[in-house]
Write a protein that binds this DNA or RNA. Structure first.
Lengths: 339, 339
DNA sequence: TTGTAGGCGTTATCAG
DNA sequence: CTGATAACGCCTACAA
């Protein structure tokens, strides 16, 4: 339980001025070898650590970046946060974290709080980007990078997944395997990412000259249980379908479990492709065909972009799209066309 | 892109002294109504936000707590972090987060960094608590709470799960169902928590008057895949067993999938109980019997304890054990004893 | 009701 | 080589 000691105290004990102590501590400027040693030994025995607050006040640099997220759970976000932290620490920055529970007021307040803490930049992850966000960000004297949403139109840099694009690709893959009766299990209808994925699904569908049946497009949340429930409802409709696109792997597993419980087989009876692949996918008894993309990379790119903007001082708007892969494994199968 | 403005600047524009501006901003002390309005309008139009650094320097309070974790991923930790953040923000504190990738040097360095940032307390989550940690913590002028390990013996407050106890209870439950040939799938042998759970398993086993067979105790990691691999190895031994205790639900699912792939049935052929229940458990086709405890609560308790210690200024050593439940569901079954 | 001034712990500039 | 001293932005007596 050593108490914190100030540079003045060290100087006093060494019988020198604080300027000299500072020089010794930072190895800069000339110092006579004997006094240097004297000071060093005092620093050692007192356990002196410079007060970063004072230091930061003096050079107007906090080496802090702020992070605003809904919460810290979920399959992907923690990985993204990890990516952010990794990059940021490598650059000598630290992360001040805040969570908002998705509450708009809380989000806006967090921008204020982080600003008053003089963070040098902010990474903001949100499920839905609103005008209020844009307004507050515009007034901020520091760069902001949005994660998970494309905010290019709002004049703000962002790093995000290509939701519509990969949903389109995945759907095309199913169509290419001769499937024509497709279902889609989305997330909450309020989720922007979910609706973009739905858009991709529908676009591929329509380009194939078909009109999607509203009844085949369901909404739930991102959980395994939700997949199970949605599938139960779908089966109750007694409408034929040969393939399914799900918002993520958890929902796919729920759907698969439900199908298996009804005595159906994957992929013989139904082909399934998931639009997100996390560790949960490993739990599937059928190797899941899925679109995958790296949350870690999402965080890394966001952090790199932010640090770059902090360094260059300019706020040019950049847009970074994270790559994805469509992996076809055992849960999808070519449909034999019966004439 | 409003620039940050200082209190001096506001005072200048309002034609008053900074003391008056301060009074207005904090609503304290008497201020003439007209000058108050004048100042308020200037604060409004300049978007003045007090510089927390300067403020904190002046009152020697940062309202910051530090968090040191291995990384931000995993099933449980993000929930714990969420719990921490929730409590801490409610109390007007903020969290400075650092991750160490399990590297000892990095852990020690993070203590120094956080200290120099003058956080008022630290929450440290680690997989193995070492002497080096103890030494550095003892020298810190601020309270530290360790999460996930019992560090009472090291004279440091901690909040943790009752690993040995619940492993013992779970094993007893199986023994109570007449199972006598038990296997145990642990995590990495270096994991302290894993070895405590193994201890509980072995103790229950020995209390029943039996000696555990080393071959039936396996080590891997915490993943679904690891469960699958360990089960494959176990089956290769061709040793009979009727029940299995796994380090967590993911490993249980891997083991179950492997058993199902070998044409065996759960729980008819093997009863399984997992020593941790997270969202992954939902993916199991057989409702998993498992021990469950709240990671969120772990974080909440740790944060509450830390805030309390910061407030009271004393560093009394406290120990908080998180409660658990043993839920017996469909993956375990009473064994019919054949005479 | 308002202003002055010292202090918080550093950094940095400029004399000695 | 070394030491004053003015910032940095704010708080808080204490004076006026």
């Amino acid at each position: 339980m050593t108490k914190d000691i100030s540079i003045t105290e060290v100087a006093k004990r060494a019988g020198v001025s604080i300027a000299t102590v500072s020089r010794v501590f930072h190895n800069r400027g000339p110092v006579k070898e004997s006094t240097r040693r004297k000071i060093e030994s005092i620093i050692e025995e007192t356990g002196y650590t410079p007060n970063q607050l004072a230091r930061e006040l003096a050079n107007k640099k906090t080496q802090l970046i702020g992070l605003i997220v809904h919460d810290f759970t979920g399959e992907g976000l923690p990985r993204a946060i990890n990516g952010v932290n990794q990059i940021v620490e490598d650059q000598g920055y630290h992360v001040l974290m805040t969570s908002t529970r998705g509450n708009l007021d809380s989000e806006l307040r967090n921008f204020e709080i982080l600003r008053s803490k003089r963070v040098e930049g902010i990474i903001f992850a949100t499920r839905s980007f609103k005008k209020e966000h844009q307004e507050i960000i515009e007034k901020l004297p520091i760069p902001v990078v949005v994660m998970l949403q494309d905010t290019t139109e709002n004049g703000i840099s962002s790093v995000f997944f290509q939701n519509k694009q990969f949903a389109y690709d995945a759907t095309k893959a199913l169509l290419g395997m001769n499937h024509r009766q497709l279902a889609f299990f989305g997330g909450p209808s309020a989720s922007v990412n979910s609706s973009h994925r739905k858009d991709g699904f529908i676009q591929a569908f329509m380009e194939a000259g078909m009109t999607p049946d509203d009844k085949m497009v369901k909404h739930g949340d991102f959980s395994i249980e939700s997949g199970y429930i949605q599938m139960n409802k779908l089966l109750a409709l007694k409408k034929p379908f040969t393939a399914l696109v799900t918002i993520n792997d958890a929902v796919a597993i729920g759907a698969i479990n439900c199908l298996l419980d009804h005595g159906m087989r994957i992929p013989e009876d139904v082909s399934i492709i998931a639009l997100d692949k996390t560790v949960v996918a490993d739990a599937s008894r059928v190797q899941l065909s899925a679109v995958s993309y790296s949350y870690q990379d999402l965080g890394i790119q966001a952090a790199k972009l932010l640090v770059k903007q902090i360094g260059s001082g300019n706020k040019t708007i950049e847009q970074i799209k994270i790559d994805y892969d469509v992996h076809l494994q055992d849960s999808t199968q070519r449909l034999n066309v019966k004439e």
